[in-house]
Design a binder for these strands. Sequence first.
DNA 1: AATGAATGAGAGTTCATTCAT
DNA 2: TATGAATGAACTCTCATTCAT
Lengths: 225, 225, 225, 225
Amino acid sequence: MKSSQPLTPTPRRRSAANPGISDIDSNDAKAAILKAARAEFSAKGLTGARVNEIAAIAGVNKQLIYYYFGNKEDLYRTALEVVYTEIRTLESGLHLGDMQPEEAMAALIGFSFDYLQATPDFIGLLNHENARGASHVRDSKAIRETNSPLIELLAKTLSRGTRAGVFRRGIDPVELYVSVAGMSYFFFSNRLTLSSIFARDLESKAAVQAYRKHVVSFAMAGLRA
Amino acid sequence: MKSSQPLTPTPRRRSAANPGISDIDSNDAKAAILKAARAEFSAKGLTGARVNEIAAIAGVNKQLIYYYFGNKEDLYRTALEVVYTEIRTLESGLHLGDMQPEEAMAALIGFSFDYLQATPDFIGLLNHENARGASHVRDSKAIRETNSPLIELLAKTLSRGTRAGVFRRGIDPVELYVSVAGMSYFFFSNRLTLSSIFARDLESKAAVQAYRKHVVSFAMAGLRA
Amino acid sequence: MKSSQPLTPTPRRRSAANPGISDIDSNDAKAAILKAARAEFSAKGLTGARVNEIAAIAGVNKQLIYYYFGNKEDLYRTALEVVYTEIRTLESGLHLGDMQPEEAMAALIGFSFDYLQATPDFIGLLNHENARGASHVRDSKAIRETNSPLIELLAKTLSRGTRAGVFRRGIDPVELYVSVAGMSYFFFSNRLTLSSIFARDLESKAAVQAYRKHVVSFAMAGLRA
Amino acid sequence: MKSSQPLTPTPRRRSAANPGISDIDSNDAKAAILKAARAEFSAKGLTGARVNEIAAIAGVNKQLIYYYFGNKEDLYRTALEVVYTEIRTLESGLHLGDMQPEEAMAALIGFSFDYLQATPDFIGLLNHENARGASHVRDSKAIRETNSPLIELLAKTLSRGTRAGVFRRGIDPVELYVSVAGMSYFFFSNRLTLSSIFARDLESKAAVQAYRKHVVSFAMAGLRA
DNA sequence: AATGAATGAGAGTTCATTCAT
DNA sequence: TATGAATGAACTCTCATTCAT
């Protein structure tokens, strides 16, 4: 395994005579590879994914993947970091500043549902990571250092609400985070088997929206003092 | 080789009267293969798992796997069905008959946590199934036909409690099931990455018990009228 | 490779109390194996044939094949010898004694066509033998010693006809045999590809009979003085 | 690696003007594989042939066979088509234009002998095809579409001779083709067992030439009015 | 006489990766 | 920057054969 690649594709050899064109192509290829890699790794994991397949989906020569990313594992790591970064960026977009605790908490719970829907590769990547010991997440400085703003927001909002007397006391913010995230995560992660077992379509837009509503109201009820 | 869950339900003892039918050895080997297969498939999925590894862990000749199970995918399917059957058997052990709705519901929620802990292969198998389209779950008559008693118990208990005025109205039992199961599932499924991200050990006995308590109280609070 | 088995199945362990029954069963199994083996080896050759398949078709336990015939190659040799013996027996049935040379020759040519039709395994076995160097035919004392009465009959009939002035002089009996046999052999051996290439059904009864007629008249015309 | 029959008809030489397209090496490897494959498949058939052996004989890495030909069966199909094409090319070289019917027919019969001698792989491949149901010949568009010019030449020559009164009436050209081809085919196909059975060397140059003479004179005599 | 269990050798094929340009 | 050619290692699976009863 070679050294890992930089997260943001850094163009090389830009010449004065040909200032940007080839960089754009290069970035296109790189981006196409990453996009294909995310989907492929999410669906099949590190070992299940096929370099050939990624190249085919990205529409590039297989060798280009090695040129840009070193090897399969480095590509995986990069894809993982890119997705985590994307998640964090989404989280940073949350602004609950002047909301009341209850309103803010409802927004947070809703958000924990929405971003899973918006980032479908995330669940697959995470599941495979956990199945294989989460070594890449643990070993990635980039991922470890990108703290989740969500948990801090949640802790702050929880404590605001507790002080305001609208939320119960004695709730651990990490445990709250896990249970709230779990309600949404499990829904998206296991929709297929759940649909099959319950003979009920959980993939329709209506079902998704109904479940979102349930999660928010159920969790809010669980919090109230 | 110990047989923890024999494939054929009634192993016959070899006796003088029944001299040639050696189910014992055969079942031992079969059971050892299945046990190893469950763990291997749970950790690595269908494609990631290695037949060699399963044979080595089971302590049998690799070819015996093909002799008994045909091929890798059939072994996978069988392992999946065995685990599902085991889950269903656990669920059938639940007897809430004469409990009050709240007591019964708390038992149910606790159980949804406990059986995931007791059947560690289940989450891995399910995650891989969902990642690959859940085709094996959908195609298995055995799995589809084994309805979950849990969802029916939940629906019945919910309705009992609603009528008794202790639970809120308007809660859908399937959605309740998904959210309750999700709280526990996500905890076990994503413990590794969660521990890493939050820099907090979620694997200790204490942490597990604490989270179980949280899940039950949080869900019960969410239900109360 | 073990020693070869006797051609005619020799029953063992006949007891006074149970004089014939088990022998019949044993012979049944042996005969079933041989029948299946002939077809399988004819279709797929020594290496292409599958012991499993032979056992399945014969309806016996695979191990019984080893019990009776030692190993795959010995079974092959035995099948080869049985078919050769069958051919020779058919040939011995030819009685041209008091026929005129032309009549006798026509009968011989017709026979060279008929016995290929009657013994479909023969061509397949022979083709595979030739493709693999004919070592088994060469090494089988049984086959080498079973001279073909056909070639002698042909030589005698040819010489009778030549002396009688009805056949041309200077025809070598072996070459005549090869060319006459070849006309029929090729027809049966290559019917499938010939049908495909010429887009003409050579498998129908009518086509077979028409070709037989052609062979006889064509060969007789080629012989006439 | 020598390229005796390149797959792609027009290998381009690598030149300064055309610097990167290296058909030469690629074709060499491809051609070497095909050459080895023809011989191996001819001798042992599709199932009997060994990919390892083909690679070893061709002097290439085994995996290159998969790189170029996909799998064993596709390689077989390709080899079959190449041999058929070669046969057809040989046939196309026949020019009987201004010969008299008898002379032309003798040339045709002689040719049907000569090309089997010149293309030793052909008989083996054809025998295995027929033994296995001729499915590949039937399924190959390339083979089906490459009509045999031979049969048309034969039909034309036969009809010319019949009109000229030198050949008998009532001879079917396809049947004539089959019997004439059969005489030669059987000789080459079954030389080994025939030599063994008749204890007569049919492999010597003299024996081959003598048999060729026999075939031509025997068939011509069979045709004459 | 008959059979289920078990195994070693090797087959076809896949796959990540490197070579060479 | 980009690509076709080539390879070693490993994987699933097949198959003839043996073991043990």
